[in-house]
Write a protein that binds this DNA or RNA. Structure first.
Lengths: 187, 187
DNA sequence: AATGTCATGTAAGGTGTTACATGATTTG
DNA sequence: CAAATCATGTAACACCTTACATGACATT
């Protein structure tokens, strides 16, 4: 059950409400690691609080409850980080589409590859800003380097996606040229 | 619903039974793109057959049914490849753990990073063999280059994981050295 | 003959998504 | 004062995992 560990991990950085956590999923975890909606987050926070892994540290306007991780929660998080249960869950729809790319025509393949290059460029720009913010925090010596490892991994991953797509484009061109040469020879 | 598209994609390469498809998930899709158990695959194959997207092309011993993709199935696959529904699903437990790495002690971080380096090496070896097989098929001119794009992507991804982990190890060493220098200065 | 692999299936329970529901507070 | 945003919740349904269930065929 990774949702609870994602919540514990986010709360290990700083206290937050269910609303805050929902946005953190949207802006930072969703595209790289995990997604969850508020309808799943709120009940899970209530369960975690019931089990003593997190606790309400502040109540604000509109029924807002800010949670902080407890010592028991930190232990649970640490155990999961150091000894995750069996095979890691992986699900990636984009990679799934890469698997089946070759079932398309060359021009369709090129279209998708160009989309992925553009996506990589957009994400690299976003991550660049993110890394700047993390670096700034680090210089101010405010706390730790939470997020730096993941941001750097994200940057490298999208650079890889970009380079792979460029390589694949070249492959398609090469295959097409070879096919045309063969055609001229035989026909 | 990506499961059905994963099945259609695999069947677009070659006909297969539910049993075959279950193994294909285990050996090729599971670690990179998607996972499914036989208990989910068999009912979905029956639904796809009912909708005319695949059809039984052979019945063998032990009730084995070999399915092939139909023209309608190819159309459905193509539509999904070219126009996937909204935000791509991403779920990756390893990346989730990377996000929260900095909540651990330096030695614990080093331990995890070394594990990831070893994992990358193991996967790179497996993918290397896979790429050799795909290249061999290609030289024999047997059909297309199904799997090549994904295998190359997998290779580059694990190289990236390895390089990132090496970088992260250096970061930890650097931070530790800086912390010790600061300690000597003040205390 | 026993063991392992091939082969397909269902049921119960847990996880995740979509839709419905409500109301407070802030901003223009 | 209208609209946007903040804030939390539940219910129905879809998806996925684990466990149970059965039997044929191949190998030693």
């Amino acid at each position: 059950m990774s949702l609870r560990h994602a919540l514990l991990g986010l709360l290990a950085d700083q206290p937050a409400s269910g609303y805050d956590l929902t946005r953190k999923f949207e802006v930072s975890l969703q595209k790289y690691a995990w997604h969850a909606r508020h309808s799943q987050i709120y009940p899970e926070l209530n369960r975690l609080a019931g089990e003593g892994l997190i606790s309400v540290v502040e109540e604000g306007a509109r029924g807002r409850r800010t949670y902080a991780i407890t010592d028991a929660g930190r232990t649970e998080l640490r155990d999961w980080l150091l000894a995750p249960a069996k095979e890691a869950v992986v699900r990636n729809e984009t990679v799934l589409r890469m698997f089946f790319l070759s079932t398309l025509d060359n021009d369709e393949i090129r279209g998708l590859l160009r989309e992925w290059i553009e996506e990589a460029d957009r994400e690299l720009a976003r991550i660049g800003e993110s890394l700047d913010r993390i670096e700034a925090l680090r210089r101010e010596r405010k706390g730790r380097w939470f997020g730096l490892f993941a941001a750097e991994y994200g940057k490298r991953s999208f650079q890889t996606q970009r380079e792979w797509a460029e390589w694949a484009l070249a492959q398609v061109d090469e295959a097409e040229a070879a096919a045309e040469a063969a055609k001229r020879e035989t026909g």
